[in-house]
Amino acid sequence: MFGFGRKYDNPALIAEINETQQRWFAFLDKLEARVGEMCAAAIPELKTVFAQDKDPYKRAHGHLLSGLQGQLSLIRTKANDAREEKINGLIYAAEGVIPPITSAEGSKYHQLLHTFRMACFNRHHIFEEKLHVAMEKLQAAAGERDLETAYREQLEAFEAIKDKFNCQQCGGNITIPKMFFIATYVSCPFCQTQNTFLPSTGAQMVLHDARALAEQRTAHLRQLAERTQPRNPDLHRQYYRAMINEWNKIVPDMAGENEKFYERLLKDIGHY
């Protein structure tokens, strides 16, 4: 009456599991091929756009990179949706029809489902790792800007112009005492008029790029801190201190603000 003693056999389910697994693997193979193809084509383009982009913030390159990252995110979403619908859907549906795990037949089918789930999820994990590598490749494709050269050029430019200003009130010669990165008052030594000195766009960009330049100078310490396993907070502290020191050297007037930022970075280390 309850089917006691009747053996459970569901070859259709076994066939469906095998077919779904094969289709899932083939689907991810295709997506990986598409990711690989897109990266191979995009990396030279990213390099070209980065090199040709005259914008100091490299915004054209940023737009292109965002578009490509969006495409990769779309591919990731497709894989996630398919996993939810096809893999998880099949697992949930199958669990509803097969006998309980405590029975001999049920145990066999549950084992089958477990193997199927692990194979599919492992394959998906490999896909996610490949996608992550592709994302990193795209981000690193253009390389870093040569901020050191740009900074040296600005220092030289400042040395060349620092004595070439006159007071707007009395015409007396004004020497800019140090390199400024934002507008500031400079007193005329003759009539005491407060002249407003506005640095060039290039000099203003030094302030904007100062942290990135300090990070470039201390990149070896960051890599050491990031690659050391298990995580060593002392190496991170060492890197942050060196980076902030470099940052302060580039823009000494911002030292007070930078030190506050350093304190916050140290607090963040404690949160890990």
Partner: peptide, 23 residues
Amino acid sequence: EIKQTPASMDARDCPNCGAGRAF
């Protein structure tokens, strides 16, 4: 677009007496 401008010097005169802005 970002315009590249050279460094410049400016001063504000007092609109009342015409003197330069001194500290």
